[in-house]
Simulated scan of single mutants.
Amino acid sequence: MDGQSTLGAFLQARRSRLHPDDIGLKTYGERRRVPGLRREELALLAGVSASYYSRLEQGQSHNASPEVLDALARALGLDESERRHLHDLAASAARRHKGLRRPPDEHLSDATRHLLDALADVPAVVLGRRTDVLAWNALGHALFAAHLPADGPDHAANRPNMAALVFLDPDTRALYADWETKARSVVANLREVVGRHPDDARLASLIGELTMKSAEFSGLWADHQVRACDATPHAMHHPLIGAVTVTQQALRTADDQTVVVAHTVPGSASRAALALLADRSTPADAPPRPAFPQVSGLLGEPGRAGPKS
């Protein structure tokens, strides 16, 4: 989670994907020892010296100006989310290193709770910045986690974690027809959050635990994709209502929490399926489920975690 090493790793990962042909650079058939552009080639594109760029990528310089960062973003072909992430990483590298800190528990504000109440007719879930489930309405619980206790988010020390559910819980994994796309979205969002909060000890614990428990997460994390949550359609296979397609739209609150709303096209079969789900409940004689996936040292009970992916 160190800002300088993370900044260098991000720059290197993006440089390795930008090939000479992408920018019209002639190589005349020469054999290249590294994938993608060389450091000096990227420096030339960005209009900075090769030595300065090398120091920046190696974590030996932490004074990059916003203009230099924007030049690097243009040279690397970064989109807006990636450009903001680059600035966040550089800012964390420039700050004096204070080590990881354990932030206070997150709580729902009255405004967010009222918003959740107003969204009673659509599935909605409130996530903390580490993707802990802080609250969900009845339909949100029924759609995303009917196999978990409905009051799970009420217990701060033992809340479900959405990223852990996606990677470690087979029921959540089975919900998504295209699980790989959902998984990439979760990891890309976590990358964006890490850039903004590089000293968050709980976030570091979550990343470390998922890396150890899921080879798929580890591979995606090493890919350095960055994307803040936005609006993404997902085809789902729900155990009660069958096939349903929802757009999961993320709304960020002022206190850095996210309200994820799942909405459907008016008049569609998916809209009708959600209406049916609202009228149904989990059977009373359903067998008890194990506790939701946890991260040791993060969700209250060290050493307990969900099944491996």
Rank of each mutant, 00 (worst) to 15 (best):
Arg14Asn: 05
Arg14Ile: 01
Leu25His: 07
Gly36Ala: 09
Gly36Met: 11
Leu37Val: 05
Ala43Cys: 08
Leu45Glu: 08
Gly47Asn: 10
Ser49Glu: 08
Arg55Cys: 00
Leu56Thr: 02
Ser61Phe: 04
Ser61Tyr: 07
Ser61Trp: 01
Ser65Phe: 03
Ser65Ala: 05
Pro66Gly: 05
Val68Arg: 10
Leu72Asp: 03
Ala73Asp: 03
Ala75Thr: 05
Ser81Gly: 07
Ser81His: 15
His87Phe: 01
Arg95Leu: 09
Arg96Cys: 04
Pro103Ser: 03
Leu108Pro: 06
Ser109Val: 01
His114Glu: 14
Asp121Phe: 01
Pro123Phe: 02
Val126Arg: 11
Val133Ser: 06
Leu134Gly: 08
His141Asn: 08
Leu143Lys: 04
Phe144Pro: 03
Leu148Lys: 03
Pro153Thr: 05
Arg159Gly: 04
Pro170Gly: 00
Val186Pro: 07
Leu190Gly: 03
Arg191Gly: 00
Val193Trp: 02
Asp200His: 13
Ala204Arg: 15
Leu210Phe: 00
Ser218Gln: 15
Arg227Asp: 11
Thr232Gly: 00
His238Gly: 05
Gly242Ala: 03
Val246Lys: 09
Thr247Glu: 08
Thr247Asn: 06
Gln257Gly: 04
Val261Ala: 02
Ala262Ile: 01
Ala269Pro: 13
Ser270Asp: 15
Thr282Asp: 05
Ala286Asp: 12
Pro290Glu: 09
Gln294Ser: 14
Val295Ile: 14
Gly300Arg: 13
Glu301Phe: 09
Gly306Ser: 06
